[in-house]
């Protein structure tokens, strides 16, 4: 029998993977479209455009690792299941929110920045560094969201 608290915690794990994953899927897709157009003209740009395409993918990974951290802490894997109270379950659920939504939106916006970066290196291939820096500026907020989520998760008393 699962406690309500445990159900909330699992919703949290699912939300982290789900939303951050959606964001990354959109972001990576947007860059991929732009990149395919550019590579059609110049196949040599595959490497640098792939680098840019990888950038919005990290949010999905951050979401996954937050989700993993949750199911690890509540003992679904590698231990015995902790019997969470309602409050504990809700706390875990909300701890997942920063990376869920921070990841969702930052991945989409980073995808757009990176897609513009792809157009930039279509014209100026030597400026790939700058295109990456622009995209990485967005990444900061995903990193901060992740940090908040995992630190909270580490310290919620279960």
């Amino acid at each position: 029998m699962l406690s309500t608290g445990l159900v909330y915690a699992i919703i949290g794990a699912a939300a982290a993977v789900l939303f951050a994953g959606i964001g990354s899927a959109i972001g990576v897709g947007v860059v991929g479209q732009a990149a395919a157009g550019v590579v059609a003209e110049d196949p040599d740009k595959f490497g640098s455009t792939l680098l840019l395409q990888a950038l919005p993918g990290t949010q999905g990974i951050y979401g996954m690792l937050t989700g993993f951290l949750i199911i690890w802490r509540i003992g679904l894997i590698g231990g015995s299941v902790v019997d969470l109270t309602l409050q504990q379950g809700l706390a875990v659920l909300f701890a997942a929110m920063p990376i869920a939504f921070g990841g969702l939106l930052s991945a989409i916006m980073q995808g757009r920045a990176a897609a513009s970066g792809v157009y930039m290196i279509a014209k100026r291939p030597e400026e790939v560094g700058k295109a990456i820096v622009y995209a990485v500026m967005v990444e900061t907020y995903a990193v901060l969201a992740l940090l908040m989520s995992i630190i909270t998760l580490f310290y919620i008393p279960l």
Binding site: I61, M64, L65, F68, L69, V143, L144, L146, L147, I150
Partner: peptide
């Protein structure tokens, strides 16, 4: 600079 922790932990947790 907190990203150092976040990325360090990310590698470990993954």
């Amino acid at each position: 600079y907190s990203r150092l922790l976040a990325l360090g932990l990310a590698t470990g947790v993954i």
